[in-house]
């Protein structure tokens, strides 16, 4: 436990040491806090005032108002909830299926590998957005459908990354050693290999967050995301696009927040990857020495 805590501290301090990833981390932290406590803010994403429809940014409405006179800023804040919760749910679904699949496929490498990876290939062959759309067509539009659709499209990445890492660890002597001492396959997979595989998986978690947010927004933009009136950034861009001539800010400002969120995850993902890679270059686990 102490080790995990030290590693977390070491990673956080590594991220904070770089200006770009520090800024991204702070931005995302702010987004998470604001979306968690949005109910406490004096804003209302649902209040309609048709007289005030499509008004530009002002002191009262920082991002202007939409076609029903609703405050766009409030809808952006509540939209963050949709985005971030989709990201979280997608990571949970994708990781909880993808990691075991990759682990089993890579560790045994026999028919189990062939069968599991064939299914993963099929999942990959269909562009994620199409797969998600088809699934939502079946399940109907709902928050849960969006979670599941986005989550399933993330499975192949987790499976492949875990499998690749397992394959490279599988032949290492320390894994063979456990086998030689009589350790079972399960012991080897979960106690020996998995603790050594978490760094690419962690990077993948961050990458999937940005992919999930993008996918959720794209689905909403195509009109198959969460059902209205739940605020969603993609849905706002979709409506905003119809008012490009009258109210260009409508499509631009939510897009800025969406882009910043995706960029932040991307910056953190890359910073993590390079931090973890440097650590490997330095010869295995350096965390303890640096953090303690």
């Amino acid at each position: 436990m102490n080790r995990a805590w030290n590693s977390t501290l070491w990673l956080l301090s590594g991220l904070m040491a770089r200006p770009a990833s520090a800024a991204a981390l702070l931005f995302l932290a702010a987004m998470v806090i604001v979306s968690l406590f949005a109910d406490l803010l004096p804003i209302d994403p649902f209040a309609q005032r048709l007289t005030d429809a499509l008004k530009g940014p002002s002191a009262a409405n920082w991002f202007g108002t939409d076609e029903l006179g609703r405050d766009i800023f409030a809808r952006v804040i509540y939209g963050a909830r949709t985005s971030l919760s989709t990201a979280a749910a997608a990571v949970v679904i994708a990781a909880s299926v993808g990691i075991p699949v990759g682990l089993v496929a890579g560790f045994f490498g026999d028919w189990r590998d062939t069968v599991l990876m064939r299914f993963i290939d099929v999942l990959l062959a269909l562009p994620a957005i199409l797969f998600a759309m088809a699934l939502i067509a079946v399940l109907g539009r709902s928050q849960m459908a969006a979670f599941i659709a986005v989550g399933i499209t993330g499975i192949p990445n987790f499976a492949r990354i875990t499998r690749a890492r397992v394959l490279s660890l599988r032949k290492s002597d320390f894994v063979t050693a456990v086998e030689a001492f009589g350790g079972s396959s399960g012991y080897n997979m979960f106690r020996t290999i998995l603790p050594n595989a978490w760094s690419p998986i962690l990077v993948q978690v961050v990458v999937l967050c940005s992919v999930a947010i993008l996918l959720e927004a794209a689905l909403a933009f195509l009109g198959v995301g969460v059902a209205p009136p739940t605020p969603s950034w993609g849905e706002m861009l979709r409506t905003g696009k119809s008012y490009l001539y009258e109210a260009p800010y409508y499509a631009v400002l939510p897009g800025v927040i969406l882009t910043l969120t995706i960029l932040s995850f991307d910056v953190i993902g890359r910073a993590l990857a390079s931090l973890l890679e440097d650590r490997h270059d330095a010869g295995g686990v350096q965390i303890e020495r640096t953090a303690s």
Binding site: A217, A218, G240, A251, V252, G255, I262
Partner: peptide, 10 residues
């Protein structure tokens, strides 16, 4: 990082 649909709009 820029979503294609937003870039398209811009």
């Amino acid at each position: 990082g820029v979503p294609t649909f937003w870039l398209g709009i811009l």
